[in-house]
Each structure stands twice: as C-alpha cells, then as structure tokens.
Write a protein that binds this DNA or RNA. Structure first.
Lengths: 192, 192
DNA sequence: TACATCTTGGAGTGTCCGCTCCAGTTCTGC
DNA sequence: GCAGAACTGGAGCGGACACTCCAAGATGTA
C-alpha cells in the first residue's frame, strides 16, 4: 500500500510503536489509539498503510519470530540442545514476543483465523526440532523424530508458560530435564 | 449476597448461562449482555448477586476444575498414569473448561490478578503429580519429585495447547511418551 | 398482618473501541 | 514546475462494553 518513501517510513514507525506497546501492555492492551499516539500518526495514516489493527500486530509478531531463529539460513547445524537453549532464552529472555505468542495462541483457541497462523508457525518449529533429533540419532524414523520433537516442544511451551506466570520458576533447569528424557522415549509404552 | 431462595436460584441460573457461554464462545466472547440474556435476568439482578462479570467467570472455572478431579477426597490412590490420562481426558474431552483455562492463563501473562489465581491452581496440581511420582518411586526426594511433576505437567499443558489448536493431533499418544521419559530424568544433565 | 429486607428488570450512563471520511498537504515522475 | 497519486491528521461515527440506578414487586420474619 505504501509506495512513497514517507509512507514506508511511517509504516516502520507504526510497527515500532506496535512492537513497543505489545511488549509493555500485552496483546489486550494494544489499542489503535495507543499505536497512533505512540507513532505520532493519525488514524487515517494508519489505515492508509494497514488494513486493520490486527494486521499490524501480526506483522510485528511475524517479524519477531523470524528474528529469534538461531539458524535462519537453515544450514542444519543446530543441535537439539542448542534449540532447547534457544527456546528457553526466547521464553525467558528480554524479548517479550514469547508472551505475545502465547497470548495469541490462547486467542487461537476460539479464533480460527489466529489458530491457522499459530499452527503454521508451530509446525515449522516441530520440523526444526525433529531434524535435530535425527541428526543426533540417525537411526530414528521420521515419525519417531516428529513425535519426540512434538513432546519436547509441547513441554517447552508449557514450561515457558509457567515461567512467564511465575518469575521464580527456573525454566532452564526444568527444560534440561527434557533432553535425556526425550532421548530415551521412542514408542508409547504402558508402564502400569 | 443472596439470602433468599429466589436469589440463590437466580445465582445458579446465571452460573449455568456463564458456563454454557464459556463453552460456546470462549472467554473473549462472554459478555454481560449474553449472560443476562441467556439466564433471562436483568443486569440489575446480576449485580445484586455478583460483584463483577469476572466474578461469575472465575466461579464457573473454579467449580469446573474441582469437578474434574479424579480423586477429590485426596485419598492418594491415583497413579501417575491415572493422572496423565485424566489430564488428557480433561484436555481432549467434551468439557470445554480446558480451553477456558488456557485462555485464562494467557490473560494471566499480562494481568497479575488472573496470574495469581492461575498459579494457585497450577501449584496444587503440581503437588498432586509429585505425590504420585513419589508413590511410584519412594526413593525420590521431594525436590526431585516436584521437578518431575513440573516437567510432566508443563509438557501436558503444551501438548494440550497443540491438541486444542490442532484437532488432528493425538495427544494421548504423545502424552504417553512422557511417562517413561519422566521416570528416567532426575537431575539436569549436559548431553552435548 | 406488618414491614424490613431482598430481588427484579431494563433504561440509561460513561467510556472505550476500531474504523471512516475528507480536506488539505507532500511527494515523485515526467 | 506541473499533474496526479500518495500521504496526512483528527473529528467524528456507530456500536459494544461493563456497570448504575431505582421504582416496583417478592420474600421471609415476628
């Protein structure tokens, strides 16, 4: 929509403001008024550059998720431990995008449009983890690797949630417990 | 606040309507208007019986969480597998409270009042899982048991989230992977 | 029965929201 | 340096929201 230089600059200013606000007040607190005030821009300018408020929010989240990728080139050099550590850093680090991401996921539970976007991102991440699993243990089948990835990633998400709600929770410690655990589990087993 | 019989009945009708609406439209879609219309009650009656809309929502969630407890008496007879299965059923079963619970947790990420309620419930559940871990392996220390419980529960929460967003996801299968996995992990270990 | 207290409905209040509209301005290609 | 398209701010719209107010009626108590 933006073609002139000034328009593109305004667009960036709006995205910055949105990013800042998401970090400060979470996804529920971000209003159009706050965004435009923060970006020093009129509502008309905003709608000249974005189709809706959510459009800007999604754009910010998308960019932020891309930014934390430890191997954006897809060289396939990251170990499972690297990925887990990166995820922990992502959840507990200074970037607030993890909180936003989980809030979006929560919304996705009743909003199909959001759900599809969240799922797409989740599946990409599962693939990445599965690849690392197979690199670590080449005898693994593809399905097994995906299962392990799903479990580790699910666990990390849940632990991240706990960490975000409970500041005293040591996510790194608990996440590390997953590494040997996941390596030992290949098939669903009855224990009782 | 309610003392007469009619007031108590109205209160129940309001809670029923809230419960029904939470199930149908999720936590974001529940409005006061919808609740009062559904309960066939005026706004004034609502506020005669509840302090706020959230009050009614929390009450419903609280009751629902109590209802799914497989061992409400606290007899200590539930195995880890029982608890995991119960959690899976809770997440994938017909009751919509799991979805609401996760949505509340998401809100808790930026709303401290909600966060404290969510955390309280989470800690109770962790304790229950930890007790089951120690029953399964009495040599376990208290801290170790809590760690295992935290990991299993975190994983279940994350897997539950995936299951709710992705209807094709087999949560039961993946949750079972956690059982032998958790049993083998006691201390954080470096693997790389 | 007498009467204090509780319950009721729903019109109304204040607030906030996302978004539209548009007249005026700035930008860029030619 | 002109034409036309892109950009701008901000008043204002329509509607949703949680919540208040209160007169009238129902209920429980002595």
């Amino acid at each position: 929509m933006a073609r002139y230089r000034v328009g593109l600059e305004t667009r960036e200013r709006i995205l910055s403001a949105t990013r800042r606000l998401l970090a400060e007040v979470g996804i529920e607190g971000v209003t159009l008024k706050a965004i435009t005030a923060n970006a020093r821009v009129g509502a008309g300018s905003f709608y000249n550059l974005f189709d809706s408020k959510d459009d800007a929010v999604f754009e910010v989240v998308r960019e932020a998720i891309e930014a934390v990728d430890p191997d954006p080139a897809g060289a396939g050099t990251d170990s499972l431990e690297d990925l887990v550590d990166a995820f922990v850093a992502f959840m507990t680090g200074s970037s607030p995008i993890a909180r936003i991401y989980l809030q979006l996921a929560g919304r996705g539970l009743t909003d199909p449009a959001i759900a599809s976007r969240v799922l797409r991102s989740h599946r990409r991440r599962v693939e990445r983890f599965a690849d690392a699993c197979r690199r670590e243990d080449p005898s693994l089948g593809e399905g097994e690797a995906i299962s392990r990835a799903e479990v580790i990633l699910g666990a990390l998400t849940g632990l991240g949630m706990t960490a975000l709600v409970d500041p005293g929770f040591d996510m790194r410690y608990h996440a590390r417990l997953l590494l040997p655990a996941a390596a030992g589990a290949g098939h669903p087993t009855r224990t009782g």
